[in-house]
Simulated scan of single mutants.
Amino acid sequence: MKPAEIERLHSILNLWPLGVIQSVEEILNGAVNQVYRVQASLGNFYLRLYKTSERARVEREHALLEYVASYNLPAVQTLPSRYGTSLIEHDGKFGALYFESPGHQVKKSDLTVVHARAAGSMLARLHKVLKPLPDVGYRKYSLNWDAKEWIARLDKIEAVILQKPHLSEADQWVLYRLKDQREWMRNPACLHSYVPKFSAQVLHGDYHQGNLFFQKETVCGVIDWDQAVYMPRGFEVARVASYMFDLKPDLTMAFLEAYMALNPLPQEELEDGAAAWGCHCDHYVWAQEEIYLHGNERARVFIPDTAYKPFSEVWAQLTKKL
């Protein structure tokens, strides 16, 4: 980091009683907020500088953390600032300092059925605790897209890539996936809108291995609650099966069995959630636009290194095996 950046970070960190700051390291695996690991004489923490300028959104997140922790579930908490607040504002940006979670994170490629069961059990417990909460402005997915508009967005991304003087292997892979996604957008079987049949509740919204910490056979830490949503729980269950486990039969089965053992999910409700998530998943263009239209290379980690396949197709194959 440049001296000016280090000085800026130290001026922000002085807003908390940390003692002597020993090191500050930027964490580059996030795609939205700026995150830094801080080692200080008081302990190890994570500083998050939020991209959003919506104070209410961040305050909702912090209230949610306290609520979940009150039920002895491992939502990683914030360290109060010198002013007694969980949230600070510095140079027009909101920030918060989080305690370091115990345990360790696991790469997607290293996930086992043990991790899948642990993730399923924790998600089931979280959903039960979160169910009574009212909607106080949480994000909702609008599952309604204009097919022509979405095809045009894919065309725009493709045009930007083709203008590059040299195409990397990653660029070529994105072009390959864009082609198949565009063909599916034109397929009459592709759903461009969906209205879930089951009621919504507060959900974590971004539950996956990058936001979980494991200790032996349990999840001991859940971080990044700023994407909390108000949607049917089947939507999040299907999202985790897809996003975290790539719908691999052994991992998905272990995850679903562990979830349903603690928080039963009828087949009809699961299928409703899968249809809702599939409709959203098939129209996903955020990562491609972030990379090629906004220059955010961090988003590249969200593009799978597999061929594009409609979610409904993969889900149908999986449910036959289940």
Rank of each mutant, 00 (worst) to 15 (best):
L178M: 04
M185P: 01
P188I: 09
S193R: 15
S199Y: 07
D171A: 00
P188R: 10
Q172P: 00
C220R: 08
G210E: 00
R177W: 03
S199R: 10
A147T: 05
H204M: 04
R177G: 05
W150Q: 10
A200P: 10
Q209V: 07
G221L: 14
I223A: 02
A200F: 14
W173R: 13
G205K: 03
N144M: 10
G210F: 11
H192G: 01
R186V: 09
H208L: 03
K179T: 13
C220K: 06
V195D: 01
L175F: 07
V160T: 02
L178P: 02
K179Y: 08
K216D: 15
C190D: 07
R182Q: 15
S168L: 03
N211L: 12
N144R: 14
L191F: 06
A147N: 02
E217I: 06
G221P: 13
P165N: 09
L154S: 03
P188H: 07
H208D: 05
I161S: 08
E169Q: 14
C220D: 02
I151C: 06
H166K: 13
R177S: 04
A189T: 14
H204T: 03
F198W: 11
C190M: 11
R182I: 06
V219S: 04
K216F: 15
V160D: 03
I151P: 02
F213I: 03
S168R: 02
D180F: 15
E149Y: 04
V202G: 05
F198H: 14
S168W: 02
D206M: 08
I151M: 05
F198T: 12
T218E: 14
Q215D: 12
S193H: 14
A147C: 06
D155S: 12
I223K: 03
D171P: 01
L167A: 06
K156P: 06
L178S: 13
F198I: 04
V202F: 08
M185G: 00
P196G: 08
Q209M: 02
C190H: 09
V195K: 08
E169K: 15
P188A: 11
P165D: 02
H208Q: 10
G205R: 06
A170I: 10
N144T: 09
V222R: 01
N187D: 14
E169H: 14
I223V: 14
V174E: 04
V202A: 07
Q209W: 05
N187L: 13
P196Q: 11
Q209N: 09
A159L: 05
P188K: 09
D180P: 12
L162W: 03
L154H: 00
D180R: 15
L203V: 12
T218P: 10
K164A: 03
A147S: 10
A170H: 11
Q163S: 11
Y176Q: 13
K164I: 02
N144D: 10
T218M: 15
K156T: 10
P196H: 13
W173F: 15
L154R: 02
W184C: 05
W173K: 14
L203M: 15
Y176L: 09
V160A: 12
V174F: 01
V222H: 00
H192T: 04
L167F: 06
W184T: 04
V160I: 12
E158H: 13
I157M: 06
E217T: 12
D206F: 07
F213T: 00
Y207L: 13
D180N: 14
A147I: 09
Q209Y: 09
L203G: 05
P165G: 04
